[in-house]
Each structure stands twice: as C-alpha cells, then as structure tokens.
C-alpha cells in the first residue's frame, strides 16, 4: 500500500446529525408551491396590499351585485337610463322622474327618502351617474380581465417560442416586438380602434382588439429574458441529463419558474388596461354614448369645461371610482413586486 495523503477523510459512514427543518407544510403550500405560498403570505402581511385587496374585493362585490344595487331599467342593463333629454346636468339629489328603476334595498335606510333620486346627479342628456358607476364596474372587469388574459397569453407564447428556440426565430420575434414597442400605445390604440369601428361597428370590440394588439409586448420581453436565464440553471441541465424531452423541460421546469414576474406585470396590467380603456372612451372611441362605462361618463365633462365647478360631480364621482379601482390593483402589484425582488428579501 502506498503512502496515504495527509488528509484522511473519516472512514465512518454514519450520517452525522444534519439539520433539517421540521416545518409543517400546510395543504395550501403543497397546492400552490413554496414560492407562491411565500408570496401570498407576504402579500397578506403588507398593509398596502391588504388595502389593495380590500378595494378590489369591494369592486368585485359591486360588480356581482350590480342588478341589486341599481336595478336595470332597460332590456340592456348597460344602457344608462335617461331621465329625459334635457341638456343641463342635474345636481346630486335631484328627483328622478322618468325611466325610474325600482328602489334598491339600500336606498331608504341610507337616504331616508322613499322616492328615487339621482344620488350622484346626472350628466347632460340626463344619464344617472350612480347607475353608470355601478354598472361600469362590470364593464371595467370585463374589459380589464379579457384584455390582460389575451395579452399575457399572446406575450407568453411569443416570448417562450423566441427564448426556447433561439436563433433566427428569436431574432424575428424580437424585431417585431421592437417595432410594436416603438409606437405610442394610446395613439395606436386610438388609431386601430378608429380603423376597426367602420368594420365592426360601434361596440366594445374595436377598442378591445386595438388594446390587445398593442399591449402584449411587455410580457413577451419579460418572459423571454426570464426563460433565457432559467434555461441555463443547473436543475434544467440536470433534467436534460436525466433524459427528459425538450418540450417537457419547457413546461415542467422552465415555465413554472419563469412565469412569476410575468404574473406580477399582469396584475398591475389590469389597472392600466382599465385606465386605457377609460381614456379611449373619454376620447369618444369605442363605446356608444350612454354605455355604462366610467370613461364614457367622464367624456360628458368635456362639454362643460367652463362650468366644471358647478358640474363637479360629473368629474369627481366617476374619477374617484376609476382612481380607486386602479389603485387597488396597483397596491397589490407593487407589493408583489417588492416581495419578488430578491434584493428586498432580507427585509421582510
């Protein structure tokens, strides 16, 4: 036997007492995955995001219970009821005479009156503002969720293809993304909406399609860069060495670990989409006059610029609603971003 080296590892094969955690894993953690569980816990701890959640919850409730809160008058509940056709807006508290809805359950206890009034006033053309706000919540959710869902899907698909196949495929997809990103969002949404309206008619669809067409790029970029970095991680290489097929690696290893920043963007995105849609409505693109949509109501204010101090309620009520809605999503999204940022991790 030749000379042994100076450092002789112990021949003892017993496993030393290594530390491992006895932490209980709840069913929720198993269901969500550890990363996501940590995020949810973090969100529930941050006061800002709790406020955000509450706001969102309030809006969800309003949307769900819209028919009960402000019973519809017309066959199409999204048509705001008009109390006459006069051009002069009525102040909050004015009596509601024509096309009066059934008195909702909360009305009498809250206001002490038995006859229906315009609680928040009317716009020119006598559209009831409260009605518009309540049913506009449904519009906001409909449009926001739809646009975000589609843009995220499109963006993720394109970004994943670009990242995973690389080469010229990547190049082409990224150039296209660059070109789309050069164009100003609102202007392009406006323009495309205007182009589509003669073809599709005046409805929600032109602005929705327009917003989708120009809203996917951010997601494509983010998912692509995340996939590129995850692709090189050891556990992905290990899966390859273990003989896992390429497609399965993408779906089981790469995407689940890469998707989270994208989801953060998406949650913030709902707020932005609703803002954008309201802006388009405000400019007169998209929904018909009288459709229950916050931007639509606000567009009436354009006619009364010189007298806005008198007709303040046309601006303040829908504006406040819109702001609170967006703020709810932004609070949650911001908190999520803080939690996901690895540099902030030490702080919680």
């Amino acid at each position: 036997m030749t000379e042994q080296s100076e450092m002789i590892p112990t021949g003892d094969n017993r496993m030393l007492d290594e530390v491992h955690s006895d932490r209980k894993i709840t069913w929720l953690e198993k269901a969500l995955g550890t990363e996501n569980y940590r995020i949810v816990k973090g969100l529930l701890k941050t006061p800002a995001s709790v406020v955000g959640f509450i706001l969102i919850l309030i809006f969800v409730l309003i949307a769900i219970f819209a028919p009960v809160i402000m019973p519809p008058v017309d066959k199409d509940p999204y048509k705001m009821p008009r109390d006459g056709y006069s051009g002069e807006p009525k102040a909050p508290g004015a009596v509601w005479t024509r096309k009066v809805p059934d008195v909702p359950f909360w009305y009498e206890p809250l206001t002490g009156k038995t006859e229906m009034t315009h609680v928040l006033g009317t716009t020119q053309g006598q559209y009831d503002i409260l009605y518009g706000i309540v049913w506009g919540t449904r519009t906001a959710f409909k449009t926001g969720l739809l646009v975000v869902a589609v843009t995220v899907t499109v963006g993720v698909v394109l970004g994943s293809i670009a990242a995973y196949y690389g080469g010229w495929v990547d190049n082409i997809i990224m150039r296209i993304t660059d070109i789309f990103m050069t164009l100003p969002y609102i202007m392009m949404a406006l323009i495309f909406s205007a182009v589509l309206t003669p073809i599709l008619g005046r409805s929600l669809w032109p602005p929705l399609i327009a917003m989708i067409s120009f809203g996917w790029m951010g997601y494509a970029r983010v998912i692509r860069s995340d996939i590129l970095s995850i692709k090189e991680r050891d556990f992905v290489l290990a899966a390859k060495v273990s003989g896992v097929k390429k497609n399965r690696i993408l779906f089981k290893h790469v995407l689940p670990n890469a998707i989270f920043p994208t989801l953060v963007l998406a949650s913030l995105g709902i707020g932005d989409v609703v803002l954008g849609f309201a802006a388009l409505s405000f400019l007169g693109i998209g929904t018909d006059v009288g459709y229950a949509d916050w931007g639509q109501i606000l567009s009436f204010a354009r006619n009364w610029i010189t007298n806005l101090d008198r007709y303040w309620y046309i601006v303040v009520f829908p504006g406040l609603t819109l702001t609170l809605f967006v703020m709810g999503w932004n609070l949650v999204g911001d908190a999520m971003r803080d939690i996901l940022d690895p540099r902030m991790r030490g702080k919680s």
Binding site: G33, T34, E35, R233, D234, F235, L237, A238, A239, H253, P256, N257
Partner: peptide, 9 residues
C-alpha cells in the same frame, strides 16, 4: 451546486 441543481418547486 446543490442549491441550484434541484428544481425548487
């Protein structure tokens, strides 16, 4: 790297 070679999920 034992920390990177196992999929955390």
């Amino acid at each position: 790297d034992p920390y990177a070679s196992l999929n955390p999920r």
